[in-house]
């Protein structure tokens, strides 16, 4: 009945499992993290049409929400801050979850040896993280969920993306899903399609209209809640 594997333990984890799981998500494979940071550093933003299109949609009229005021508060020009924010959001959502603070730390401390070597091994690091339990499906990562959710503040959400939940398959190659023909496309595949601007198949146009028929009349009174009976 249960097909859970890996971290979805059915036995109650001791409190000691908390540090270990967080270390797994945060620190376990520094090499992989470095690879992600290097990939971000080397990312060709100018060539990414979808990013550029999204950027045009949020600039030059800055978003009206409060994150706008956040962006104008610090010293860098608002546009630069917004673009940086958008980059982190976009990268987290469509390439790989990335923690802005840790990236900045990494960038500040990284020597030149980091970037070139790690960048070359990006693709394998992405698809074969050493500490992630076997899929399918892969375990979620709350730390990366958090990043995605935080990143939503960047007001750069091309398509009503799911809340923060969506990083589950970012470390997984889609072939892992091969066992079940009915299993949907992986999260990463969908993200990549959206990022490329591909049309995701199967989206239907639902008429935006109200029901012509009159609503039903209520015939029942409310039932008491269990806590109201006591």
């Amino acid at each position: 009945m249960s097909v859970n594997s890996g971290t979805a333990a059915s036995s109650p984890p001791a409190s000691s499992s908390l540090p270990s799981s967080s270390s797994q998500t945060n620190n376990a494979s520094p090499a992989a993290a470095d690879a992600v940071f290097a990939k971000f550093a080397a990312y060709d933003w100018a060539a990414d049409q979808h990013f550029q299109a999204g950027l045009r949609s949020i600039l030059p009229p800055p978003p009206p929400s409060s994150s706008d005021s956040d962006a104008t508060a610090p010293s860098p020009p608002p546009a630069a801050a917004a673009i940086e924010q958008a980059k982190f959001f976009y990268f987290s959502k469509f390439v790989h979850p990335i923690d802005k603070e840790r990236y900045l730390e990494w960038k500040a401390s990284s020597s030149s040896s980091h970037t070139s070597t790690d960048a070359s091994s990006l693709s394998t690091a992405d698809s074969a993280p050493s500490q992630v339990p076997p899929a399918p499906p892969p375990p979620p990562s709350s730390s990366s969920s958090a990043k995605t959710e935080s990143a939503t503040n960047g007001d750069f959400s091309p398509s009503g993306a799911a809340a923060g939940t969506v990083t589950t398959t970012t470390t997984q190659s889609s072939t892992n899903l091969g066992g079940d023909a009915h299993y949907p496309r992986s999260f990463q595949e969908i993200c990549e399609m959206v990022a490329r601007g591909d049309e995701v198949p199967g989206i239907r146009q639902i008429p935006d209209k109200l029901n012509d028929a009159p609503p039903s009349a209520s015939a029942l009174g409310p039932r008491k809640k269990p806590w109201e009976k006591a």
Partner: peptide, 21 residues
């Protein structure tokens, strides 16, 4: 449902809620 003991509703999204219906 607060009225019918054997009725439940599920809100869902295609494609993990990234895009679609």
């Amino acid at each position: 449902s607060p009225f019918f003991e054997n009725r439940i509703a599920c809100a869902s999204a295609a494609n993990f809620g990234i895009v679609g219906n």
